[in-house]
Each structure stands twice: as structure tokens, then as C-alpha cells.
């Protein structure tokens, strides 16, 4: 088994934190969290993960509390990074369908 942790800086105070866990070549778990730094530390905006084999996207409010959730197809980090680079903080205002 292998755990791959990546932190990708989108901007000085915007990151994607990624965790992928592989069993051989099979990816068993992933989470990709777009976060913005505030005075209280890193706060999640949007997160894609497949916990309990249920790929979904979560969106959080300004206090880091879950706002809404939607099932998605399995996601890849490259795809998420492209999406985040285009929309950045505007992700918070987009419909979940566009993030799924």
C-alpha cells in the first residue's frame, strides 16, 4: 500500500490538499480539498472524496461547516486542479452540478 500526500499551491493563500491511497495500482481512496487561508487557518471551500466508496463533492460555508453535497463520478487530481485554477474562490458560488 502507498499513501501519496500532495499540497498544491494555487496562489499564496490558496491550496489543494490531496491524499491518495493505493493498493498496488488501484486507487482505494482519494480526497482533494480546495482551501483558502484565513486568520483562523486553512478553511475548506470545496472537497471531492470517495469515502466509503461513494464519490461526492462537498461545499462548505465561511465557517467551514458543510453547506451541501452531491454524488459525482470518480475524480482525478489533474481534473480538479484544472477546475480550481480556472474558478478559484468563485467555486464557492457555483452550482454543485458544475462541480460534480
Amino acid at each position: 500500500m502507498k499513501v501519496l500526500k500532495k499540497r498544491i499551491y494555487i496562489h499564496r493563500n490558496e491550496i489543494i490538499d490531496s491524499i491518495e491511497i493505493y493498493d498496488g495500482s488501484r486507487r482505494k481512496y482519494y480526497s482533494y480539498t480546495y482551501m483558502v487561508e484565513t486568520k483562523r487557518g486553512w478553511r475548506p471551500y470545496v472537497r471531492w472524496d470517495n469515502f466509503q466508496q461513494q464519490p461526492h463533492v462537498d461545499r462548505y460555508d465561511e465557517n467551514g461547516a458543510l453547506l451541501e453535497q452531491m454524488n459525482t463520478p470518480e475524480k482525478e487530481l489533474d481534473e480538479i486542479e484544472r477546475l480550481v485554477r480556472i474558478f478559484r474562490r468563485n467555486l464557492a458560488a457555483m452550482s454543485l452540478e458544475d462541480l460534480a
Binding site: M1, K5, K6, R7, Y9, I19, S31, T33, D58
Partner: peptide, 25 residues
């Protein structure tokens, strides 16, 4: 969400998983 990541991480580490970490700019 961090609890979920911690759980998956600890589960993998307790099975002897290797780990890689990187930061990309």
C-alpha cells in the same frame, strides 16, 4: 473532512503503507 482523511491514513499506515509527501508550486 479531516477526520475522514485521518481515518483512511491511519488505516493504511496500520497495514504498513509507505508514504510520499510533496508540495508543489
Amino acid at each position: 473532512p479531516s477526520v475522514v482523511d485521518d481515518y483512511e491514513l491511519l488505516k493504511a499506515l496500520s497495514k504498513g503503507a509507505e508514504m510520499e509527501e510533496e508540495t508543489i508550486f
